[in-house]
């Protein structure tokens, strides 16, 4: 019973957050001094043509009516038509979001796989050389503009060394070989057994995800280090050591278990942030992800696409938060 009440309260909370998100994006979209009618009929249109298009777009209705219609449509998954691509916004997002998902997932895997051990090393050997290295990496990751790092890494690894494939998601001659199922190219290629396509796609994703992953590594390592340092000063660690437990066991089993709880939140947030789409990285690497889609739409005053993409990103944020909340409950027995 209490679980039911708890989860229904939870759902209500999510629904309210979502409605708030819809309202804010919708009204901001209507307040900005951008004329969606001009985008349709062009700036040379005479008054009568202009007025007709305005009525057809429903812009002569009161704002509240427009909002009600919008919410109704969004609920059935209709974000309208994009002005830039002339396709339904939903179709566009279904195409660009998997590209970002692919990049963000790789980057997060890199971030966790390298960042957590580095953070632990930094904490364990505090103020000694491993810690210094971790700190420098963290600092550089914090201060180097990603745009610059992207261009330079592209220049070195693609331009000079030729170790990786160039910009874009796939070589132009590999396109259309694999039928999109999930939209995530690597998965689709593997499902179809097209290993040449898989190799090419992997060659393309390596560099941008490594660049993004580097920033993830820097962030996760810094956070892990500080969480770990806090735990290592606790009394239970002294007690565990006093019992003659091996240092490895103390760190990896006792301390890490307690670090895991806040760390999940940190990783979740960093993943969610990457899922928003990394506009600069996507631009440098000609990666057709959601960040670039949103930016292009913004610059073209394509409000349907802007609202659609913002809502999807908002939903992803809510989703990831939810997920890390659930994980939190699993990891911390007190939090039920």
């Amino acid at each position: 019973m209490s679980i039911l009440r708890q989860s229904s309260g939870f759902l209500l909370q999510v629904a309210l957050t979502f409605l708030g998100l819809l309202a804010v994006t919708f009204f901001i979209g209507r307040v900005v001094p951008i004329d969606p009618v001009l985008a349709v009929v062009g700036d040379q249109a005479p008054r009568d043509v202009y007025e007709q298009a305005r009525r057809e777009l429903g812009l002569d209705q009161p704002l509240w009516t427009q909002f009600a219609i919008y919410v109704q449509k969004v609920l059935v998954g209709d974000f309208g038509q994009s002005l830039v691509t002339n396709r339904p916004v939903v179709d566009d997002i279904a195409r660009v979001f998997p590209a970002t998902l692919e990049l963000a997932t790789f980057a997060t895997i890199i971030g966790v796989a390298l960042g957590v051990p580095m953070g632990i090393a930094g904490a364990v050997w505090q103020d000694r050389w491993p810690d210094q290295i971790v700190r420098v990496i963290g600092l550089v990751g914090y201060s180097v503009p990603i745009f610059w790092l992207g261009i330079v890494s592209l220049l070195v690894f693609y331009g000079m060394l030729g170790w990786v494939q160039g910009p874009g998601r796939l070589g132009v001659f590999f396109e259309d070989i694999v039928r999109p199922v999930t939209g995530v190219l690597l998965v689709d290629a593997a499902l179809a057994g097209e290993w040449e396509v898989f190799r090419n796609a992997f060659g393309h994703v390596v560099l941008p995800s490594a660049v993004l992953g580097y920033f993830s590594v820097a962030y996760i390592a810094r956070m892990t280090r500080s969480f770990m340092l806090e735990q290592l000063n606790q009394e239970y660690i002294v007690a565990a050591r006093a019992k003659g437990m091996s240092e490895a066991r103390v760190i990896w089993v006792h301390a890490l278990r307690n670090v895991a709880v806040p760390l999940v939140t940190v990783i979740g947030l960093s993943y969610a942030r990457l899922l928003e789409g990394a506009v600069l990285t996507e631009t440098v690497f000609a990666w057709p992800g959601i960040g670039r889609y949103l930016t292009t739409a913004l610059l073209a005053a394509d409000m349907n696409a802007v609202l659609g993409a913002t809502i999807v990103i908002g939903a992803v944020f809510i989703g990831v938060n939810l997920l890390s909340d659930l994980l939190y409950r699993l990891l911390d027995p007190r939090a039920t």
Partner: peptide
């Protein structure tokens, strides 16, 4: 990265 697939193509 040199060891990764997709790399090493001239």
């Amino acid at each position: 990265f040199a060891a990764l697939p997709g790399a090493g193509e001239l």
